[in-house]
């Protein structure tokens, strides 16, 4: 029996995330994989702005705070100077898919040899639940109080699908963290992405579908069901690009 312990790559403190928030699980998965790969001293966590910024205080290992949306640019500067380090960004959907769209697309297109962990909870959690670029059609937020209307706000951005049409990325995959299977698959995907990076293969992108009980206005269990009936049908989990396997 494997012992269930706190990952070395997290500080011995309570998670700062709200009760039931899957950000905590996403962070834990990343930390677990880094421990397993014995990279806790070698990893550099490029933290973004939003709830993901809480990583600054919980991450045990080298960590740097980036400006909103700019984590892929910051990671580019770091990885070009320290190519032997395991570099990853941890970004939310507002950060990555709205204000940071240019930075993520360009870093991916350059094939920068780092990993992006993208937590997609379809809301701006830290600022109190405004519409995100990934907010679902009809989903309520503080700036779409009657539900997201595509006639005025467009459609939720599918980042994995966008990444997959680029030539350079080597591994692009989406996982939903609302089921044990999804969690186990996600962990495998994160591990694969980090291993590809360590082998110098290029840009890897992991999207993790998460929830926001606080701003969705639901109990944690209800958010998991909401993800099954609403989020997953639109943001389909799966491997969107796997250059190594294709080759």
């Amino acid at each position: 029996m494997a012992e269930y312990k706190r990952p070395q790559s997290l500080k011995p403190m309570a998670t700062p995330y709200c009760p039931g928030c899957l950000h905590a699980l996403a962070t834990r998965l990343v930390a677990d994989v880094i421990d397993e790969l014995q990279q806790s001293q070698n990893a550099i966590n490029v933290v973004s702005v939003g709830c993901s910024a809480l990583n600054l205080y919980t991450w045990k290992g080298d960590v740097i705070g980036a400006a909103h949306g700019r984590a892929p640019a910051v990671a580019t500067g770091i990885k070009r100077c320290l190519p032997d380090r395991l570099v990853f960004t941890y970004q939310g959907d507002g950060d990555l898919a709205a204000i940071g769209l240019a930075e993520i697309m360009s870093a991916a297109n350059r094939g920068e040899n780092f990993t992006v962990i993208f937590a997609n909870n379809q809301t701006y959690g830290m600022t109190g639940g405004q519409m995100a670029p990934t907010t679902l059609i009809g989903q309520k937020s503080t700036t779409t109080p009657f539900g997201r209307d595509p006639m005025t706000t467009g459609y939720p951005l599918k980042m994995c699908e966008l990444m997959a049409v680029l030539e350079a990325p080597v591994f692009v995959a989406r996982y939903a963290l609302n089921s044990p299977k999804g969690v186990m698959d996600a962990k495998k995907g994160i591990r694969k992405a980090f291993e590809l990076q360590m082998a110098g293969k290029g840009f890897t992108f992991i999207e993790l579908l998460t929830n926001c009980p606080t701003n969705w206005g639901m109990g944690p269990i209800d958010t998991l069901e909401y993800m099954n009936t609403n989020t997953i049908p639109y943001f389909k989990p799966g491997i969107y690009k796997d250059k190594e396997s294709e080759a």
């Binding site: 490029v46 740097i64 980036a66 400006a67 700019r70 640019a73 910051v74 990671a75 580019t76 500067g77 770091i78 990885k79 070009r80 100077c81 320290l82 240019a102 930075e103 697309m105 360009s106 350059r110």
Partner: peptide, 26 residues
Amino acid sequence: GAFVQGESEVASINMVYGAAATGKRA
């Protein structure tokens, strides 16, 4: 050394931010 043509001035200064954090002269 490393040279990167950024996708914007915004990205470029943030690349410099990352590079400077590594102790390299950027």
